[in-house]
Simulated assay, not measured.
Amino acid sequence: MSQTIINIILFLLLASFLASRFIPSRGVRMMTAAELKRRLKQPGVQYIDVRTSMEFRSFHLPGFRNIPLHELAARARELSKEKEVVVICQSGMRSQKASKLLKKMGFRYVTNVKGGLNAWQ
C-alpha cells in the first residue's frame, strides 16, 4: 500500500514538472512561423531572438534583436513592458522559457514563436 502511494506521488510530481516545462504560461500567446511571416514588419512590436550571440550572427531574421536567454533578466529593462514582445529561438524551448520570464517580470503582451527558427522554412 505505501509503495502505491509513493508511486502516485512520484507520478504527480513528474506530471507537474512536465506541465510546467511544456505548457505555456498564462498570458503568453503562441504564434506559428506562418503568422510571424505575416506580422514581421508590424510597427510597435519588439522582436527578440534569445539564442546565443554566435547562433544569432550565423543566421537571424531581419528585425529581430539578440538578447540571449542567459542575459534576458539583466537586460529586460531595454524593452518596453507596454509593447508586445515576440520571442524566438531555434526550436521554441528557450523562447518559451524567456516568455515565462518576461510575464513574471510584468510584461503585458508576450508572444512565443512555436517551433522557433526550425519552423521558419
Score class of each variant (00 low, 15 high):
residue 1 M to I: 10
residue 2 S to C: 02
residue 3 Q to H: 14
residue 4 T to R: 11
residue 5 I to F: 11
residue 6 I to H: 11
residue 6 I to G: 08
residue 6 I to W: 14
residue 9 I to W: 04
residue 10 L to T: 03
residue 11 F to A: 15
residue 12 L to N: 07
residue 14 L to N: 06
residue 15 A to Y: 04
residue 16 S to R: 01
residue 18 L to V: 13
residue 21 R to P: 06
residue 22 F to K: 06
residue 22 F to E: 05
residue 23 I to W: 12
residue 23 I to N: 12
residue 23 I to C: 14
residue 23 I to L: 15
residue 24 P to M: 08
residue 24 P to Y: 11
residue 25 S to F: 08
residue 27 G to K: 07
residue 30 M to Q: 13
residue 30 M to R: 03
residue 31 M to E: 02
residue 31 M to Q: 10
residue 32 T to E: 07
residue 33 A to G: 13
residue 33 A to H: 09
residue 33 A to Q: 11
residue 33 A to S: 15
residue 33 A to D: 09
residue 34 A to C: 00
residue 35 E to D: 15
residue 37 K to F: 05
residue 38 R to E: 15
residue 40 L to I: 15
residue 40 L to A: 09
residue 41 K to A: 03
residue 42 Q to Y: 00
residue 45 V to R: 10
residue 46 Q to C: 05
residue 49 D to G: 00
residue 50 V to D: 02
residue 52 T to A: 03
residue 53 S to R: 14
residue 55 E to W: 05
residue 56 F to V: 09
residue 57 R to K: 12
residue 60 H to T: 10
residue 60 H to M: 03
residue 61 L to D: 00
residue 62 P to N: 08
residue 65 R to D: 05
residue 65 R to E: 12
residue 68 P to Q: 13
residue 68 P to N: 13
residue 71 E to G: 01
residue 71 E to K: 15
residue 71 E to V: 04
residue 71 E to L: 15
residue 72 L to E: 08
residue 73 A to T: 11
residue 73 A to H: 13
residue 73 A to I: 12
residue 74 A to C: 03
residue 74 A to L: 00
residue 75 R to G: 09
residue 76 A to G: 09
residue 76 A to H: 11
residue 77 R to Y: 05
residue 79 L to A: 03
residue 81 K to W: 02
residue 82 E to Q: 12
residue 85 V to M: 06
residue 85 V to A: 13
residue 86 V to G: 00
residue 86 V to I: 14
residue 87 V to Y: 02
residue 87 V to F: 02
residue 87 V to Q: 03
residue 87 V to I: 14
residue 89 C to M: 08
residue 89 C to H: 09
residue 90 Q to P: 10
residue 92 G to Y: 01
residue 92 G to I: 00
residue 92 G to D: 04
residue 94 R to M: 11
residue 94 R to D: 06
residue 95 S to W: 12
residue 98 A to N: 04
residue 100 K to Q: 12
residue 100 K to I: 04
residue 101 L to K: 07
residue 101 L to F: 01
residue 103 K to A: 09
residue 104 K to W: 02
residue 105 M to Q: 14
residue 106 G to F: 05
residue 106 G to Y: 04
residue 107 F to Y: 13
residue 107 F to I: 02
residue 109 Y to S: 12
residue 111 T to K: 07
residue 112 N to K: 08
residue 112 N to C: 11
residue 114 K to M: 12
residue 116 G to P: 02
residue 116 G to K: 01
residue 117 L to W: 07
residue 118 N to T: 14
residue 118 N to K: 15
residue 119 A to Q: 00
residue 121 Q to F: 00
residue 121 Q to R: 15
